[in-house]
Amino acid sequence: MISLWGDMNRRGQVVVALALLLLLVAPLGATRYVLSVLTLILYFVYVGQAWNLMMGYAGQLSLGHALYVGLGGYVSAALWVHFGIGPWLGVFPAVAVAAAFGAAIGWLGFRFGIEGVYFALLTIAFAEFTRIGFDHIGFVGGAGGLFIPYEEQRLGQWWNLRGSQLFFYYLAFALAAAAVLLTALLARSRLGYQWIAIREDETAARALGIDVFRAKLKAVLISSSMTAIGGVFYAFYYNSLFPAQLFDMGRSIELILGPIVGGTGTVFGPVVGAFILTPLGEILISVTEHLGINAPGAKAVFFGLTLMTIIYLVPTGVWPWLSRKLGLARRRP
């Protein structure tokens, strides 16, 4: 931990400390709306970081991460609705189920040498398969959705994830901070170095004694478990779950835009990406409303154009470019 801090230069330390402080005191001055946007940003930092571990570090492109959000959310919500098992307990089976799916995908993909775009398609196939499956599972409401009831007497039971906007904001903050810390630690660990070696050159990694299959499987397991916890948060924050909303490919894409725009394979890329894209979406909504354009899709068109522009200008992500510009990174020839 100390070496983590010491690895940053003075300016980097100041920026990180300021950002943390700002986020901690933000609720003092923020309206309910701003707080909800910040919560969303932090949620995307968290799930983006989970995806970043698998893609940015281990180099395995998953386009089906909504699968783990959905499984985590549905398992914890169903346990609560049907059996009264609270999310602090329900999170364990939720993570276990998501990790089992992750293990199945990883095992199939890595054992049979399915790589790159093919692996990405395998992940999409699993997510879509599960989405359609959930549409037909009556126990969790099928396509009609599963709802966590609003109960007056449970308000403020934070241990059951029943709380105010403020509570969810700090929860999201804690999750995001933990994810960033975990990424930073992993990136400096033996496992992290093995992942990077695999990402850079699998053959060379193998020649250096790295058990590629195991290392990749660990990446999927960690990433899917983390994402499932994000799903638990999602379920109890929004209180309603629809297969078409949770498992949809659009959700998987939404989740990975932040880390890619921010910069994959970096600790702060997913943070920067989420802080760019989520507010951008919100700003576009209010701008289009302001201009009197209320056509559905107007916001999305601008969003798509911005995405193309960013990736065209800084293909490796905003954060590497930004940290160079601001002199936050240690210089390397």
Partner: peptide, 28 residues
């Protein structure tokens, strides 16, 4: 053309951006 040979996920973002524009233009 400038994205040919770049990593899959970078191409992916460019074309997903394009896809979002196309489908929402139709929607409008």
């Amino acid at each position: 053309n400038s994205f040919v040979g770049r990593p899959d996920h970078e191409q992916f973002i460019l074309l997903v951006g394009l896809a979002i524009v196309l489908v929402n233009a139709v929607l409008i």
